[in-house]
């Protein structure tokens, strides 16, 4: 299993990954840049690429989990 799906939150913090990811974010994408594709699976199992949505409509995308 990759470190992306870490098993323990304190282990993720102790590894320094959390600190590195927060430090990198300000220099990532900015307003005005082309949006990278967001492709995934909807809950009924179908595939969806959000570019097919934002070609037609302004799209708000929230990233998250249970907490």
């Amino acid at each position: 299993m990759s470190a992306y799906n870490y098993e323990t939150f304190d282990g993720y913090v102790a590894s320094g990954d959390e600190q590195r990811e927060f430090a990198a974010w300000p220099d990532l994408l900015h307003a005005g840049d082309a949006a990278p594709e967001i492709a995934g699976t909807v809950l009924d199992g179908d595939q969806l690429a959000l570019s097919s949505v934002w070609q037609r409509r302004t799209t708000v995308v929230e990233f998250g989990s249970f907490t």
């Binding site: 799906n5 939150f9 995934g40 799209t59 929230e62 990233f63 998250g64 989990s65």
Partner: peptide
């Protein structure tokens, strides 16, 4: 306007 929630890794798994 379209709104989507992208489910990621669990931030605080238990």
């Amino acid at each position: 306007m379209a709104w989507y929630f992208v489910y990621t890794r669990e931030a605080h798994p238990g």
